[in-house]
Design a protein around this nucleic acid. Sequence first.
DNA 1: TTTTGGCACTCAGGGGTCTGGAGTGCTAAA
DNA 2: TTTAGCACTCCAGACCCCTGAGTGCCAAAA
Lengths: 345, 345
Amino acid sequence: MGKNTLNERCQQILEAIIEEYIHTAQPVGSKTLIQSRGIKLSPASVRNVMAELEDHGFLTSPHTSAGRVPTEKAYRFYVDTLRHVKDLDIRQKQAIERQYREQGLQMADMLREACRTLSSYAQYTGLVMVPRLKTTVFRHIEFVKLSPHQLLVVFVTQSGLVQNKLVAVDEDMTASELEQITNYLNQTLTGLSIQEVRARIIAEMAEEKALYDHLLRRAFILSEAALGDEAEGEIIIDGTSYFFEQPEFSELQQMKRIVRTFEQKSILVDLLDRGVDADGVQVIIGSETQYHELSGCSLITAAYSGKRGTLGTLGVIGPNRMPYSSIIPIVDYTASLITRLLEHE
Amino acid sequence: MGKNTLNERCQQILEAIIEEYIHTAQPVGSKTLIQSRGIKLSPASVRNVMAELEDHGFLTSPHTSAGRVPTEKAYRFYVDTLRHVKDLDIRQKQAIERQYREQGLQMADMLREACRTLSSYAQYTGLVMVPRLKTTVFRHIEFVKLSPHQLLVVFVTQSGLVQNKLVAVDEDMTASELEQITNYLNQTLTGLSIQEVRARIIAEMAEEKALYDHLLRRAFILSEAALGDEAEGEIIIDGTSYFFEQPEFSELQQMKRIVRTFEQKSILVDLLDRGVDADGVQVIIGSETQYHELSGCSLITAAYSGKRGTLGTLGVIGPNRMPYSSIIPIVDYTASLITRLLEHE
DNA sequence: TTTTGGCACTCAGGGGTCTGGAGTGCTAAA
DNA sequence: TTTAGCACTCCAGACCCCTGAGTGCCAAAA
């Protein structure tokens, strides 16, 4: 029998157990559950239900004479059937928004700020994935000659993200040649997405006329070199120390595992990437991450976007036992706030 | 009686104790010391010396029947009188250098790489302080108009550091005005240190002619706005997880304290700043940091520089009990390598 | 005078035992 | 179908003891 056989009462009790456990981090017993959550049943009845829930894989007990602990399946059920994701009240929203109002921040700084704010409001570790170049819209390119064989290419995207890259050139170029290239590229490419830019470059280079126009050709080679091999996704992390508050990570080895994983970043990149195409809030629970390095950890993420579609994702990571109903709206609101700020500009 | 009363034998035994403790992290007793370090004295004699060293404040014992542990004073003595800072052998140097050879890295990436390499060779947490704008040399400035009232100012310094900043402008400016300003500033300011740049700006603005040349005036106002209120020092940290290997931080509270401090960064900025004017390797031991947040932690730092003098510092942080004699040369070599790479370009 | 062997003393840490309490499953009565 | 009762389980904390590495000090040896 699947989860559908859970009747109303089972569900309510499961929900109560999960919420109790989220709150106390202690295995919850039949008696304490009744006391703290005002249930109008006897301990024995609750125990029956609990036994049933355990059969269905929603609960386990650490040992015979302890209470029950929710499984990942339970959290999944809980999140999927969340009745009331309380929306943030206006004052909270305003408080969060006020963090950004102050400065005319440039994108990178704004995202850093977002991570910090997110983390401090949620009281869990905050994550923000910085937009990949290819998801953004070209606004401006600039070449700075550092030496006869080195150019610094500065890109500015529509959303204000600035990227720079060193490019080696084989031939020396005069200032005026560079200026011509710059002007030409800026005129030609403005408003295209980086993907379109690359497609355009490839198309133009295939055309014959480029073969004859040396300068033009070099312009495209340069910009292609600068756009290629993008860094593998940058991530901002803040509030790692919140993990220390969680009893489930009270053993040093656990924390070490987490901190190691954070330092490496590639796993987080992958996880944040998963949420990039979904809309609304995504929740990844425990082994759903598919990384044993993060066993016991869950993520709550949401995508944010600019004028031209999704840019990246942001969210928080913490133990499975997170107060989803209060954090989901925080993540949600932050993502939409960032989106609004980015579209606005 | 001061530390000068330590005779040769006392010093040798103290050194032996320190090195033994650095190695084992266990309080060292008279008998084990003799066994493991081949000392030609009896335990009783060693005990006498130990008692004396304890009187002088170089050792303490956690309790009556444990061995002795070096105090901060002992580490300070040890570092100050380090007989043989073994230089790195050539193969190690080459191995380290090889990390950088690969890519024509731009400064920020190179420093990140330096931090990673430093940390992995030293097996302690690596720290790199990114150069402050004001310590660098102007190479190029560029304005990108994001909206009628917002300009993105991109700075490139001689050493390849790229900084950008959003500046609000009250009057709209045409593209050609901007170009004039850009050209003028680039001609006028190239080769000056940022400090000189600011001095120049202030001087020129005081002169009468600027008052009459509207465009000129705006040029200076813009660059001043962009140069002002620099961010308070950026720091790269890598290898925080090495702290988990240290038995002195085996309690969760300790680690939490450390991670918190790292997240905050301001303390690290201060500590790294201290080494900026010294040449050679600096060692800050325990309470010398003057931050109780970092009690039990020591830093080994060295300054690195570019063509025009010191740019910043880098180093490692770990417990007081660090193998100074092998880490000092690693930090030293890394700093000089970075210096060489930066001067070279 | 300095070094060493001998001896009594100290104390942290590991292993064992005991007990209280919270929790369970099962059965029989309501 | 729910509940009261009961026997059973087992973790956590308290307590205790013992071992072993280490000390300080004194008197003998060098």
